[in-house]
Design a protein around this nucleic acid. Sequence first.
DNA 1: GAACGTATTCTCGTATACGAGTATCCGTCA
DNA 2: TGACGGATACTCGTATACGAGAATACGTTC
Lengths: 239, 239
Amino acid sequence: MNAPISIDGDIERPATVAESVAAVLREAIADGRCPPGSALRQDDLARRFGFSRMPIRDALRLLESEGMVAIHPTRGAFAAGLDVDEIREVYAIRVLLESEALRLAAPHLTAARLDAAERLLEAMEAEPRVGEWGRLNRDFHLALIASCGNGRLIDLIERQHRPCDRYARILLADLDHQSTSQAEHRAVVAALRAGDTETAVALLRRHLEIGAAMLIDAARASPMVGPRGSTHRTDEDRR
Amino acid sequence: MNAPISIDGDIERPATVAESVAAVLREAIADGRCPPGSALRQDDLARRFGFSRMPIRDALRLLESEGMVAIHPTRGAFAAGLDVDEIREVYAIRVLLESEALRLAAPHLTAARLDAAERLLEAMEAEPRVGEWGRLNRDFHLALIASCGNGRLIDLIERQHRPCDRYARILLADLDHQSTSQAEHRAVVAALRAGDTETAVALLRRHLEIGAAMLIDAARASPMVGPRGSTHRTDEDRR
DNA sequence: GAACGTATTCTCGTATACGAGTATCCGTCA
DNA sequence: TGACGGATACTCGTATACGAGAATACGTTC
């Protein structure tokens, strides 16, 4: 029996059709090409993607567990609705989770890690695509808390980012908010470099609260956002 | 168009085979009849339940999203492993989430609501079945935070209860801890009745920390609990 | 005797097919 | 004209079937 040689390169599993389909659908729902509430017919998607309904079913189940679609037995799957209350709720949860995670991670945030996080910020400023920008934004937030020592907490936070990203992409088509957001990001990093954890936490909290407020404002002005539960048939089905 | 008459009775959806199978499997995994790490073969289960593999697949996907099983593409599904670190992580998250939820809910906790919660405690004391006891325990915790005004937070907390319940059922076959647990529960309710929210939160926190410590102790003594990631083939497959 | 290569078996992923339930549309009646 | 009832079309849930990949066991070679 050999010594346990540690090789870190993650081996990518043989991606199933279901996972590929889920990835495409996830993007489509996230950026609004599948409007909130629109029906996702199984054989419609099957024809479109060129596969049978089985992997599509699997993909829809996957997306359901992520909260991107709602599945009603015998009625089908629908792109998840947008809901002002959800924004409020998700951000309240993010404040809670990310504050604690940052507190736990702060002692382990070396200069090198902070440099890496800051490189993400630079990449964001050079990124015109909203989808990619959102991904980098998420990576930045995760980079700050990666060393919190609680993998499950990280996972939970990652899940909360999904709806935030979706709301941002659908509601904030303009990229104005990105510059103010970036300043807040840098302030957090600066506080962390100074070793002032509680200030960093407070700044992060404020950053999230501002983001939530912006989304809520945008949501009020948007016709797509309905009250809770109303999956409000956009009836733009069968695209 | 009629006035919106509110009828509260929840209509039960036509339960699909997949959901029924998932419910049975969930129980089997939760109470250890499916040992952690054991393989869950699709056509084995299909034969056992008397259905085809399709609804079994759906059920496994459902359980995967709950964290009860781990699915490896082309390799199959396995009952989720037990892991000491996970206990620590889940309880840390529960402390965080339930503390905040209780703070939010406290102003809305009327005497009637507290009475209802206390009735659950009484039911727990009369309940010999561990499975049912766990359900009542969860209901009690949820009853305290039901009025926190953040449905997504409640949902998140509910999800964290699942692994706790599973660990408790597998590791704490004896019911000794229930009496001490009950005393802690009652102390929380008493503080809430007195209107002392912060004391109640502190008591709840302590209650959770004690529970975590008990489980961690039990886990150390158990051969079933492995380090993270080792889904450690129990190879008691093909029962 | 140990390690490698090959063949077999097993399991999963996907495709196709059928039955059941739901939603929709149209005709009838008050 | 509006509402009810029935027939039609549609979609989903489930069953069966096939091909591909992985795990295992065996035989071979050094």
